[in-house]
Design a protein around this nucleic acid. Structure first.
Lengths: 142, 142
DNA sequence: TATTAAATGTTATAATATAACAGTTTTATA
DNA sequence: TATAAAACTGTTATATTATAACATTTAATA
């Protein structure tokens, strides 16, 4: 997905008056071209193969930027990051994480499932953001 | 919930041939008596008020133990831990996290909601563990 | 082109978590 | 009940993940 995501990201930046800079581009490229979620320091290491001795804040800033603009997601249970093509503007994300091969599959539900909505109502809780992480075994690894 | 949870935990240990030791007891007590999730180093600090200069592994070991036996949960998006009275033996957890006051409310759904089950089926993914974290604003903080 | 805003580079350090090994307590069993 | 094995703790050190702070550069815009 690397190329298409980079292109989308570039267009997005142009449209939204933010800069598609070299470090941002490189970091997105590195994360997008990985099949598995990457830790920030893995990204840093990869980046070090391209640019001269980059430092953690470079990576973390770019990660933060792309997260805000939803081109990457953080997998909380792995402290790692994955690219996202979907461009969804809703506030939920759902991941299936294969504990065997490490692959992450993203689902793209737009709405909070009803049983959870019901719980929100019962507790009078106003959700703004939600994340689901499901660990298990993927098709290939069964 | 502190007392009842400690009691449950003690009984559980007796029944399951694991030891209800001093550091485990203290750590569970500290986490259970907090209304909000606590970070490991907050627990460590509290523990330091009771015992002499405890070290991180003491806390992390106890946390790991109680997590395994489901007396506490980790809130991934906060790197923090909360007590759990439910004693559920199923493999899912769901939390509502108030970004205003920090309170965490746990839901207790037994089953993966249908839309997510459907996604699992579509992708032929075999789930073993699932976690939902919903950020938002609680009743009191609206 | 001067000013401002946005972004980067760099140093240092904070926050979170675990490895490794010695020593102790409890449990199992000879 | 002595002894071995297992479970657990104490301690030192260090790994891993993430951010604060400030100087500098780049780009947008007045």
């Amino acid at each position: 997905m690397t190329q298409s995501l980079l292109k989308k990201a570039k267009t997005y930046c142009e449209d939204h008056k933010c800069r598609f800079t070299e470090p941002r581009m490189q970091v997105l490229k590195i994360i997008a071209s990985s099949k598995k979620p990457m830790g920030a320091y893995e990204v840093l290491e990869k980046l070090g193969q391209i640019t001269d001795n980059p430092k953690p804040p470079t990576v973390y800033r770019a990660i933060e930027f792309w997260q805000e603009h939803r081109f990457i997601h953080r997998i909380e249970s792995l402290n790692a990051y994955v690219g996202c093509e979907a461009g969804h503007r809703h506030s939920g994300s759902q991941f299936m994480i294969c504990d065997d091969c490490g692959t992450v599959i993203e689902a793209h539900l737009c709405d909070l499932p009803q049983p959870l909505k019901d719980t929100m109502d019962q507790k009078t809780f106003k959700p703004s953001k939600w994340n689901v992480e499901i660990h298990g075994v993927c098709e290939k690894c069964v």
